[in-house]
Design a protein around this nucleic acid. Structure first.
Length: 583
RNA sequence: GUCUCCGUGGCCUAAUGGAUAAGGCACUGGCCUCCGAAGCCAGCAAUCUGGGUUCGAAUCCCAGCGGAGAUACCA
């Protein structure tokens, strides 16, 4: 917005510097901290500090320079006044022109507003990565929401995104589950709620494994049968895995997530073992079997000390590990898709492993290895720094949380809006509940721990998704009642209220906010913006009449409300949160 | 031991090195005859410590303190 004008002024400042023997490139514009009116400001401290002929201390000299520049520049078109104050040169925009420019642009572009031009780059984002035969809990939710939101944001910033999900469909947890099933639940079928049923059987199996005499040995024997290719177990595995996948599908649908490519751990196990063999052959890996595992001594190879450490790529008994499978998977991704970047949304505790994988792939000579990026996020724990553990029974199941939140939201909707159709009520309650659950997961820095507690999770007030959804509903309500949405463009040719200026300013920032959060892979930036926007709208709503205003004021404000709704809905959607029409 | 991350009002969180550190929760008081009170307004209260870099530091560097995590056959 107004880039050309900024450039023109920057040009004139440069000319001034050249004419007066001052260094160039030291002056940059920023926004003035909002004070009822808006414009742009240039601090002159860097220029003052860089001038070899400066007179007096920097702050004072900056003020002198600001004053001289004020005279030299005069008042460019599009501005109403300028001032030199405390070392800054402030230029104030012509409010009507600026306002109309922003609002028209939003309304013209609609939901496309804020999107960047296609970059031609393609990126894969691997996220969710659940284990079959196990439940999904709130900790997993952060991964899904974060990953999904990052995908949305990258798409809006012009990249082609492949959403990938890497499913842990083999391993001890699966064997445990199946063994328990065959011994105690043979022939049983999951009910409608497959996820819950699978989860219950998993905790039962896990409990037996740790508590029941002899069960662990039985499971080990069962594992051996599986390893030797027992057909019956293989069939059972396919069948039960599908039950889990069906359960996941239900959750993804509920959360509004979809994937373009599903990878199974079982898919890459064999190729992983082959790959390790070639690593040994090429001298990258050291085979310590049968006493020791196959390792890649990265510190020894790279000459580093306690930095990359030792990566174990195959167990001493020849069975595969996480790392064994990770390597061929990375290769498969880059062969299947022409990726410019491969992002892994994995919790921070696996940072070293990710670093090792990337380095091993580099050592193997893959030029794309440098384009692997680990998006590390902190875990979700419980108050008192208690880590969620299915063994200790401290997990908060996704299912329970969603059900409870939806019930709570339904109570509120029923109270606020009793005349709503029950079906719509249910739909609204779910959107509000899911929003409330998702928002805390993405509204803080990826590297900060989220502490889950029921009270704040079910609080629909304050800085929360329902607050943002509510602002959107209010905007929607005005527009619905307006009926006569004007096609004549808004002029804003009247004395704007500060709250209007503030709201318009925020609207104009959306493209910037999207590109910032895409660049840093931080949905939290957009989450904060969404709240600021909603707050600005509520402020406007409180201070300015729309429907009861007349003429130009009404016309312009209606256009503003429409633009605000567009931006609110757009931002919520990028965060993976739905915006109900009423609530 | 080594490495990584975190340290901002009572609690939680924000601030491309830039103007008076911004919000939420909780607490106190006010606002529905007015486009939807899941809202608005007002009040209370903060940068872990010590150095350094800089015209300017919550932000960058160093040291310390406190918390969390990782550190060869879990993922």
């Amino acid at each position: 917005m107004f880039e050309e004008i900024k450039n023109q002024i920057a040009q004139r400042i440069n000319e001034f510097c050249l004419q007066n023997g001052l260094p160039t490139g030291k002056v940059e514009f920023r926004n003035i901290p909002f004070s009822g009116e808006w414009g742009m400001a240039a601090p002159f401290f860097p220029l003052a500090a860089a001038d070899p002929n400066k007179t007096g201390p920097v702050p004072q000299y900056a003020q002198v320079l600001a004053e001289r520049l004020k005279e030299a520049i005069g008042l460019p078109t599009g501005f109403t006044r300028s001032e030199a104050v405390r070392g800054y040169l402030n230029l104030y925009f012509d409010t009507a022109l600026y306002a109309a420019g922003v609002v028209d642009q939003v309304n013209k572009q609609g939901p496309q507003f804020g999107n960047a031009k296609p970059t031609g780059e393609s990126v894969m984002v691997e996220y969710s990565n659940p284990n079959t035969h196990k439940p999904l809990h709130v900790g997993h939710l952060r991964n899904v929401i974060l990953g999904g939101s990052v995908c949305n944001i990258l798409e809006a910033s012009g990249q082609k995104v492949v959403r990938a999900n890497y499913i842990g469909d083999i391993g001890l947890h699966v064997i445990k589950w199946m063994c328990n099933y065959e011994m105690y639940h043979s022939g049983e079928q999951p009910g409608k709620d497959k996820m819950r049923w699978m989860a219950d059987l998993y905790s039962e199996a896990d409990r037996r494994f740790h508590e029941q005499e002899g069960f662990e040995e039985t499971v080990r024997a069962y594992f051996a049968r599986w390893d030797s290719g027992d057909e019956h177990i293989h069939d059972l595995w396919l069948k039960t895995r599908q039950w889990s996948m069906d359960g996941f599908a239900q959750v993804y649908e509920l959360l509004g997530e979809h994937f373009d490519r599903i990878y199974f751990e079982s898919e890459v196990e064999d190729s992983g073992k082959v790959l390790v063999a070639s690593l040994i052959e090429s001298g990258i890996a050291t085979d310590g079997r049968p006493e020791n595992p196959v390792i890649v001594d990265l510190d020894a190879i790279l000459g580093t000390k306690e930095e990359y450490r030792v990566a174990v790529v195959l167990r001493s008994d020849g069975t595969s590990l996480y790392a064994t499978k990770e390597l061929p998977l990375a290769i498969m991704k880059f062969t299947e898709y022409d990726l410019d970047e491969s992002i892994y949304v994995i919790d921070v505790r696996q940072s070293l492993h990710m670093k090792q994988m990337k380095k091993i792939l580099e050592l193997m000579g893959f030029p794309w290895a440098k384009n692997i990026q680990h998006l590390a996020y902190e875990i979700v724990n419980l108050p008192g720094n208690v880590i969620m553990s299915s063994r200790d029974g401290t997990v908060v199941l996704l299912d329970d949380l969603v059900r409870e939140a939806t019930q709570r939201a339904l109570d509120v909707v029923r109270e606020k809006n009793p005349e709503l159709d029950p079906t719509i009520m249910q739909d609204v309650a779910q959107k509000v509940a899911l929003g409330a659950i998702k928002y805390p997961m993405i509204s803080r820095e990826n590297t900060k721990i989220v502490t889950f507690d029921w009270e704040s999770a079910l609080d629909f007030n304050g800085q929360s998704a329902p607050y943002i959804q509510y602002a959107n509903v209010r905007a929607n309500s005005i527009l619905r009642k307006a009926e006569d949405l004007e096609e004549s463009p808004a002029t804003f040719a009247y004395q704007l209220e500060p709250s209007e200026v503030n709201l318009i300013e925020l609207l104009s920032k959306l493209p910037d906010e999207i590109s910032k959060s895409a660049k840093d892979l931080k949905p939290s930036i957009l989450a904060g913006y969404a709240y600021d926007l909603a707050k600005a709208f509520n402020d406007f709503y409180n201070q300015c009449q729309v429907l009861k205003a007349e003429g130009e004021v009404r016309n312009s404000r209606l256009a503003l409300v429409q633009a605000a709704r567009t931006c609110l809905e757009k931002t919520l959607n990028l965060l993976g949160i739905q915006a109900p029409q009423v609530m």
